[in-house]
């Protein structure tokens, strides 16, 4: 029983962290250009800076 009291909150918190992470990445535009992201990795330039804060990419 004690294990349950510990494991259930742990499972929920870990899952919730995953969910929060996904919602954050969605909001920050990381899912806007899946094709582009797959191609960018082939060009090892360092001018691949992330968008400025507050920017919503189209």
């Amino acid at each position: 029983m004690e294990t349950l009291l510990m494991l259930i909150p742990v499972a929920l918190i870990l899952g919730g962290l995953g969910l929060a992470g996904f919602l954050w990445s969605l909001r920050s535009g990381q899912f806007d250009d899946m094709d582009g992201a797959a191609q960018r990795i082939l060009f090892d330039d360092d001018d691949d800076a992330p968008p400025p804060p507050g920017h919503r990419q189209e």
């Binding site: 899946m34 191609q39 001018d47």
Partner: peptide, 24 residues
């Protein structure tokens, strides 16, 4: 193409950020 356009633009004076979305 994405890389070329972004590289050309970021070398232009005054440009602070340029990004091409390949999907759209």
């Amino acid at each position: 193409c994405v890389w070329l356009i972004e590289s050309l633009l970021t070398r232009q004076p005054g440009v602070t950020w340029a990004r091409v979305n390949l999907t759209t």
